[in-house]
Design a protein around this nucleic acid. Sequence first.
DNA 1: GCGACAG
DNA 2: ATCTTGTCGC
Length: 221
Amino acid sequence: MSSVPESFRLEEARAVQRRLAQRVVERPLGEVDVVAAVDVAYEGDLAFSAAVAYSMREGRVLAAARSINKALFPYVPTLLSFRELMPMVRALLKLPAKYDVVMVDGQGKAHPYRLGIASHLGVVLDVASIGVAKSKLYGEVVGDKLIDPKDGEVIGAVVRCKKPLYVSVGHKATLEDAASLVKSLCTDSAMPLPILLAHNEANRAKRIKPKAFDKWGEAYE
DNA sequence: GCGACAG
DNA sequence: ATCTTGTCGC
C-alpha cells in the first residue's frame, strides 16, 4: 500500500492545517434544498470517489459523478485530507448540478487543528460543508456536544440517528444548522441519506478497471 | 511511557 | 477503509 512520501514534513502539514482553519467561516446555512455528499471507497491502491446531488424537495438524486485515482498517501489519523481530499474534489467538480451544502464522511471542525476533511474541502472549494463521522477523532463528549479538552470550545455535536453520529461544522454553516440537517436526513442505515447514496455509488465504481492515468494519478478512459 | 486514533 | 463465515430477514 501507499506509504508517506519522503518529501512529507509533518510540521509543514500542521502549519497548512492551522492556516486554512483560520479561513473557516461559521454562519447560518440559509434555505437548503440540494444536499451534495461525497465518499471514497478503496481497492488496493485505487481510490474510487463519488459525489451525488440530492434534492430534499423532490426527494430524488439530481446528479452523480465519479473519479478514480491512485492513492498517493496512506491513512493517518488527523491527516485524512492528504489521502482523500483530491479524489473527493475531483468527483465534486464533475457533479453537473448546483448544491446548497455538501456532506462529507469525516470530521469538520472536530479535529485537533480545527481542519478535518470536511472543513478542508469547504475552504478549498469555497462551498458550505458539514462533517459527519461514524466515530470520534478528537474531543470530549459532554451531553450531546463535543468539547475541545484544551480550551473548552464546542467543536461538534452528537446526533442520534440509528447510531450516534459526530457532526461538526465544515465551512459556511453553524453547528446548529449542521446537526438539524443531519437529523432531517437520517435513515434506517448508519449514515444520512446523501452520504449513503455517495457511499453506494463509490462502491459500484469498483467494477471499473482503469487502464490509464494522467500525471496526477487520475484515471481516464 | 501509555492511551487514542475520521476513513 | 478492507478482510472475512455464518446468520437473520425480506
